[in-house]
Design a binder for these strands. Structure first.
Length: 516
RNA sequence: GCCGCGGUAGUAUAGCCCGGUCAAGUAUGCGGGCCUUUCGAGCCCGUGACCCGGGUUCAAAUCCCGGCCGCGGCACCA
């Protein structure tokens, strides 16, 4: 191991000890020296925006390409307009999400625009007698396959199959009437491997493809298109989830027949995120059947990249988590607390501090000269500017939660302002009395230091919190400087937690609660 | 059922290939303290794990066998 590390350091592949400590060193990729330049790829299906699980493949592939000064390719795998119809906006969102994650690609491909390449390789395989057109119905073939027997079409001559192939392309067969199969081992212990399907017919008149419409009827399956492209694009290392393990076994036949060299494969485990939903299928179904219950594909309860972004999670956090998982084949269940801890550190230096009061109660302070205004820095340590709180009348909101913990007659400090003593309740609110000005005085009395908002200079805040599968909207009051912020900005609501400005309108502001 | 891959503290991960330096490192959580005009950040101390059983060996988290548990796959999806 030490030898490997030394070697990697020599080659400049590993960050030296002194560099930033959060930068985790990824383990070396297998057989790098046997391939020359490392080429990796991320190959999403644009049928939906990507989630954290996809991000793992994307981030790792990209990271390794950069680490070895190689090439990273983005490839859209959109070869099923029927079962997984590609969504035009998904292509865009996926690119946006990747860029947001700091991922840049050297080349981009869209499989639906490469159909002729797939056809010509298929023809070659048929010519060589390694592939054939199968006219059996699905369940008929299944019986042959389960018995380990060849279906009648398998042994026809390449010439006959070539002829059939042209007819299929010309559209002479309908859905389910023909498939192109590759010849594999009919006695393979896993029936799924036996003569798997390379192409099937999809009626694109009924299910047009968003990019190429009804131009093609014969579509390659994932295993064919991916295998061929990985070779044509010179991919050296495939990093993908372990659900793909079997696909390697399938694809290897093509490589064997055509004398290609199969890339190195690393299968990593699945990722889960506590409390959030990752399942693409589930999300798609819900959005289709109960759209009114959700905020869209970027709902903050979804572990989609856009959902996490909307929630106030920063790309560095996602990258850090994914890199810390590395290539481990074990399934990982990320805890929200853990993710929040990392995000908090990333966001703490850039989040403006804002006073927000939930469960507000009005406090009228006697013995104070008004108007007065005070300036408070947006951040205790970083220079993020200042905000101004204007006290036209001696009336402020504080949280009733804070009040619960305060005995009558005790001193409390309004942060950055002055110290008061709670006197009594009245119909106008709580009556308090000015006590003293200095912080030292507050400390002397052991006064709690709490946030506050001037009654006359405030704005309504809708705070959206994720609670289990529900979103709770809490009506709060915030300081008016909120209006000067921009949508999408991440803030810290003092003593409440971090949040992201969702929407600013004249009368109110909605903030998504990120985490404590 | 069949095929494949795994199992290190609450969570995640390092170490496993190449057995000793591992009475197991790191992060987070949790407990305590310091600091701080936040219940945030920072600093310090503490807490807590090698799935089980056999075997090989002077020596096993690491190698071998068995068991148990978990996950993935078994499509004319990707």
């Amino acid at each position: 191991m030490t030898e490997l590390k030394e070697l990697a350091e020599k080659l400049g592949l590993v960050e030296s000890r002194e560099s930033k400590k959060e930068e985790r060193v990824l383990p070396p990729l297998p057989n790098v020296d046997m391939w020359g330049n490392v080429v990796t790829r991320f190959a999403p299906n644009p049928d939906f925006p990507i989630h954290l699980g996809n991000a793992r493949a994307a981030i790792l592939s990209h990271e390794y390409a950069r680490m070895y000064k190689g090439k990273f390719i983005l490839r859209f795998e959109d070869t099923d307009p029927r079962t997984k119809p590609p969504l035009p906006f998904s292509y865009l969102i996926i690119e946006k999400d990747l860029r947001w994650l700091g991922i840049t690609w050297d080349e981009k491909y869209i499989q639906s625009m490469r159909m002729d390449k797939y056809y010509s390789i298929a023809k070659k395989l048929i010519e060589l007698g390694y592939a054939y057109v199968d006219l059996c119905k699905k369940d008929v073939f299944r019986e042959y396959r389960n018995a380990g027997k060849a279906c009648p079409h398998r042994d026809m001559s390449p010439e006959q199959h070539l002829e059939l192939f042209d007819k299929v392309i010309a559209g002479e067969f309908g859905e389910g009437e023909a498939v192109i199969r590759i010849k594999t081992d009919l006695s393979h212990p896993d029936p799924a491997i036996r003569d798997w399907v390379m192409f099937r017919i999809i009626d694109t008149t009924r299910n047009p493809h968003p990019i190429v419409g009804d131009r093609y009827r014969l579509w390659p399956t994932y295993n064919f298109a991916a295998a061929v492209d990985d070779h044509l694009m010179g991919i050296t290392h495939i990093l993908r989830g372990k659900e793909h393990a079997l696909n390697t076994a399938k694809q290897i036949y093509i490589y064997k027949y055509l004398g290609w060299r199969y890339p190195e494969v690393v299968n990593f485990g699945r990722v889960g995120l506590e409390g959030l939903i990752l399942s693409k299928t589930w999300i798609k179904n819900q959005l289709k059947n109960n759209p009114e219950k959700f905020m869209g594909f970027d709902d903050i309860r979804f572990a989609t990249i856009s959902g996490l972004r909307r929630r106030g999670i920063v790309p560095e956090t996602i990258k850090e988590i994914i890199l810390s998982l590395g290539l481990s084949p074990v399934d990982a269940r990320i805890s929200w607390v853990n993710l929040a801890a990392i995000n908090r550190k990333n966001v703490d230096p850039i989040a403006k501090r804002i006073f927000v009061i939930c469960n507000p109660v009005k406090v009228v302070i006697e013995g104070v000269e008004t108007p007065r205004e005070i300036e408070i820095p947006f951040h205790p340590a970083k220079d993020l500017g200042k905000r101004k709180l204007v006290l036209a009348k001696p009336e402020v909101y504080i949280s009733s939660k804070d009040l619960e913990n305060i005995n009558q007659g005790a001193v409390i400090r309004l942060m950055e302002l002055f110290n008061i003593v709670i006197e009594r309740n009245s119909k106008d609110g709580i009556i308090a009395k000015y006590h003293s000005a200095s912080l030292d005085e507050a400390k002397k009395w052991g006064a709690p230091i709490i946030q506050w908002v001037p009654c006359n200079d405030s704005i309504k805040v809708d705070l959206l919190r994720v609670e289990g599968m529900k979103i709770r909207k809490e009506h709060c009051i915030g300081e008016s400087s909120l209006k000067t912020l921009r949508e999408g900005e991440i803030i810290q609501m003092v003593r409440l937690g971090f949040g992201k400005i969702e929407k600013i309108s004249k009368a109110r502001i909605s903030i998504i609660y990120s985490h404590e």
